[in-house]
């Protein structure tokens, strides 16, 4: 068993002129892991991803992929599938021609038909790329990334522009690749995707990790929430319930189980109906909002 991480980033710095996009960033991604790189706009995640993919030369620091320099394409790319954020296909080539061309250049072997079937583009095989919709182009991009089932797959905002069905299909395909041991690195704007699927999350803000860890670790530091509304008239609710502008009540609690129990007992005792009751741990959205509010205090 080799314990070498698939991706090893150490003190990565990326600067464009005066702008320091990424500062002393270090992280590792282990074999078979699903790692999500998240962040606000301009947080440096695309720059980081491009350095790890080998598209961008670090200003300083080291990036290793499979123990190699990611800019050594001949060594690294046959084992790596890359789904770019923007398409980059030749408009005059057909879907089939594009997959065959890019697929063959990865040095992996696969069948064009198999890959097109995975992304549901079989009927569009003879269509020129210029005639595809935005979502279809994303699927074509995904098809080239998973051609030959590589060990490591980069997905840069893969589901942007996809309808729900296509999104589910894409994640099904990713799940299958994971079963076969592929390592996944994801960036996305859809936090629930990262929350549901990622083993670990690197949450970037202004070029550094604001937080890094599993979803549980990330959300643990923030209180859980209970929301409900009350019929009028109703007795004053217990605990530290804050009345929101829309009339609902919000309780933030470090001990969800105990406080939820207390609330339910209060409702039972006073024969009050708790409407639209919702309770749960903090979501990633809230972690994001907490970054935003940190920022405004500066």
């Amino acid at each position: 068993m080799s314990s070498t991480p698939v991706i090893d980033v150490e003190r990565l710095n990326l600067a464009y002129g005066d702008f320091h996009a990424v500062k002393d960033l270090s992280f590792q991604v282990r074999r078979g892991e699903f790692y999500a790189l998240l962040g606000t706009n301009g947080a440096g995640k695309t720059s980081t991803l491009e350095a790890v993919e080998g598209h961008r030369l670090p200003t300083s620091g080291t990036v290793r992929v499979f123990g190699q320099n990611p800019r050594d394409r001949r060594a690294v790319r046959p084992r790596t599938g890359i789904m770019l954020q923007e398409s980059g296909f030749s408009p005059d080539l057909t879907v089939r021609e594009s997959v065959r061309l890019i697929g063959s250049l990865t040095r992996r072997t696969d069948k064009v038909e198999r890959v097109l079937d995975i992304v549901g583009l079989t009927r569009k095989a003879g269509t020129k790329v210029s005639q595809l919709s935005g979502g279809e182009k994303r699927r074509l991009d995904f098809a080239t990334a998973v051609y030959g089932a590589p060990e490591l797959i980069f997905l840069d905002e893969p589901t942007t522009g996809l309808d729900i069905q296509a999104r589910d299909d894409l994640w099904d395909a990713v799940d299958k690749l994971r079963e076969d041991g592929s390592t996944i690195v994801l960036t996305t704007h859809y936090l629930e995707e990262a929350q549901q699927r990622a083993d670990r999350i690197g949450l970037m803000h202004e070029g550094v990790f604001h937080k890094e860890g599993s979803v549980v670790e990330l959300t643990r530091t923030l209180p859980a929430t209970i929301r409900f509304s009350l019929p009028v008239p109703a007795p004053e609710p217990p605990l530290q319930a804050v009345r929101e502008s829309d009339g609902t009540f919000l309780i933030e609690t470090p001990d969800l189980q105990k406080d939820l129990h207390a609330l339910l007992r209060w409702a039972q005792d006073h024969a009050v109906e708790l409407r639209e009751l919702a309770a749960g741990p903090t979501r990633l959205d809230d972690v994001f909002r907490s970054i935003g509010s940190d920022q405004t205090t500066f």
């Binding site: 993919e53 598209h55 394409r73 001949r74 790319r77 046959p78 890359i82 770019l84 923007e86 398409s87 980059g88 296909f89 030749s90 408009p91 890019i102 250049l105 990865t106 040095r107 080239t144």
Partner: peptide, 14 residues
């Protein structure tokens, strides 16, 4: 312009 060069550079080819 249409990022085809970047796409080609995402493959194993130099």
């Amino acid at each position: 312009q249409n990022l085809f060069l970047k796409r080609l550079r995402s493959t194993a080819l130099g």
